[in-house]
Structures are given as C-alpha cells and as structure tokens.
Design a protein around this nucleic acid. Structure first.
Lengths: 189, 189
DNA sequence: CGTCTGCCTTGACTTTTGTCAAGACTATTG
DNA sequence: CAATAGTCTTGACAAAAGTCAAGGCAGACG
C-alpha cells in the first residue's frame, strides 16, 4: 500500500529512490476496518495520515450530540487535525473510516524532518497546504453565500463520484443541513 | 510604513539587515483611501498585500447583487486572493479599504524568490499559510455547526475589538446572515 | 433465514432566518 | 449648515430549514 503513496509523490515531484526509502522508513501503514477510529475526540494527535485506500471522515460532536463533518478523505487525500497537532491540545474531532481503509501515517516529527531533508517533499507539502487553504476558503464562501440546494449542487459538481460512496445523511452533515432537508431537495428534482 | 512590516517579520523570525533590505527592495508601499479598491473582481491578481495600517475587506458579489465578505484584514494581517494568483484567472473577489489604509505589496514573483533566498521568510510564510488554513477550517466548522447567534458570539470572542471598527452589516455579511437578523440577535441581549 | 441496524423518505408542525418597507440617527461633505 | 449617504432598527410577512415521529427498504450479520 506504500506504493500508492509513492505514486502520489512521484506524480507531484521527482524523488530519488533513496529519498523514497527515507520516506518509507518513517511511514507506518495502518489498516482500518469500517467504523474504526483513526482519532477520537479528546485524544492527542501528532501525525498526518495519507489515505492509500478507502474513505474517512473527520467530524465533531456538538453539545446536542449532533455530528458535524468538516471533511472527507478518499484515496490520495490526507486526513489530519492540524489544530491538535500545532496546539498540542486534545482533539475536538473524530476521524473514522467509512469503509475498510489503508492509511500511511507519518508522525509529525518525522514529517517535519522529511520536509527539511527532502526539498521535493517540502514542495509537495507546501502545495498541499496552500490548496487545502484555498479549498477551505472556498467552502467558507459557499457556506455564507449559498442556500442548501446551491451548496448541494456545488458539492455534486465539485466531487462527482463521492456522492456514490458516502451516505446521504453524511453529505447533509458536511453541507451543514439536516438529512431531511437534503432528502427534500432531491425529491424536487 | 515599511517599519510595521519589518517589526512583524522580526517578531516571527530573525532577519539580518541585509535580508530586510532585500525584502524592502521588492516591496511597494501603497496607500488607500477609504472605499478605494486594492483589487476589483474581474481583474487579475499577482501579489500579496501586508496591511501596515487600516482595515480591508475581501468580498464577492452574487447574482442578486448581494455582497459576501470572506475576510477582513487589519494591521499585521495579509490580504490576498490565492485563487486568482495560482490559477492566473481573473478574480471573483473585491478587496476594498474600509478605512484609510497602508499596505505593503509584494508581487508574487518576488514573494516566491524571497522565500527561496531567505529561509526565515519562508518560515514565516509557511506558518502563515498553515494558520490561514486552520482559521478557514475552523470557520467552516462554525458555519456548518452553529446558529446565527452562536456564530456572532464566537466572532466577538475571537476578534474582540474588530466589532468596534467594522459596520455591523458587514459583520453580518461575514457571518452569512442578513443585517436584520444580526440586529435582532443583539436586541435580545 | 430471519432479525436488526442503518439509511432514506415523508408528513405535520415549529423555529429560524430572510424579505421588504419604513423610519431614525449619525457622520460626512459640498 | 443643509443635503446626503451610510448605518441601524423595527414591524409585518414569507420562505427556508429544523424537529419530531413514523414507516419502509436493503444490507449486514449472528
């Protein structure tokens, strides 16, 4: 499964075999069964996880027990909680496998070391962080500008295929609407 | 006004006088009158702007003519449109001065060159991008999880002082609610 | 194979938020 | 200083979304 990660990296930048070996040495491959947690709220988190296969979700649980999904991560995406990582505080989020999944876990110390030692790796991460920021900002824009229906349309268009893999009520949670509302939007079509 | 930028940088990392001079050489100081635009939707954007004084807002205008503020930037913050910058497409956003302001503008070519030439500068930018991502993600979390009132409370607590400087209807736009709704929330207190 | 759980839908009703229109107050500016 | 533009508030009403409760269906699993 590390091969998926290697291909991801090579697609973005050129890595020598030695560099790949360094990265492999720092990596831990973890398999998760459906519904298994990679991170549970309240625990600390000091890693970054690359999804080699499967699908995860990151979500919080509010005072009323409602779940709010802040992100999905399928193959070739990353799942992480930078907030806990940077603050060294327990996480507010849960990261849970929605399908049987395989992830490549890199402890943040190793991750930062690899950024220093391998310029290509640093480049990949720089681009990743910047793109993540832009994606988050764009989602803020949708959240404050669009109706539930518009947000759903945008989701379909932006992530075609995802809707096939993810239960509808979780898409609703991701969009910030209730499962009933999303069901009613779809009924009208 | 460049001094504000220098202090900002020195507070984050150590810069030699020569490094500061390199940065100064690439910088353009621009003063903006209240209501003046730094960027208008439809134009291209190839820079990053550091706010030395004053206050700016970044917003889009939707099909109905309604404004949606995706961000404010006061002293020691940055104002930019990474989307236009990275895609080389015309911007969807306007950046407008809400007060008489002074900004330090760095063309992206110079910005990237400085990152390569000055490690401390690269460090500052890395941290900035990561923090921006986390802030955006946190805002997504609020947007999908909270009611209008809860979002307003969080805003007050997160950016005390900002509410003194920014017209209320713009705070409403930032939160994704109408000016009337925000006014009614405040009435209840 | 039958039970159970998760998922989706639907209806009836409530709450929240938006829309439109009007008015008051304030600061700016010619 | 008078006109004006910007800001905030309020009321009446409309629309959007949430809540609660029920039922059906399909897949998972003992």
């Amino acid at each position: 499964m590390f091969a998926v990660f290697e291909q991801y990296l090579q697609r973005k930048e050129f890595f020598t075999p030695a560099e790949i070996e360094h990265i492999r040495a720092a990596s831990t491959v973890r398999t998760l069964r459906k519904r298994q947690y990679l991170l549970q709220a309240g625990d600390g988190w000091q890693s970054n996880a690359f999804v080699a296969s499967g699908c995860l979700r990151t979500y919080s649980v509010d005072a009323k027990g409602l779940e709010h999904i802040i992100g999905f991560a399928v193959e070739n995406w990353w799942a992480t909680d930078q907030e806990s990582l940077l603050s060294h505080q327990p996480s507010r989020y849960n990261i849970e496998a929605m399908e049987d999944s395989t992830v490549i876990v890199l402890h943040n110390d190793d991750f930062e070391r690899l950024r220093r030692e391998i310029p290509a790796f640093d480049k990949v991460v720089k681009a990743l962080v910047l793109r993540s920021f832009m994606a988050a900002q764009d989602r803020v824009h949708s959240a404050i500008s669009y109706s539930a229906e518009q947000k759903y349309r945008e989701f379909l268009q932006k992530y075609p295929g995802l809707v096939q893999r993810i239960p509808q009520h979780m898409v609703a949670s991701y969009l910030g609407v209730t499962a009933e509302t999303l069901s009613r939007i779809r009924r009208q079509w």
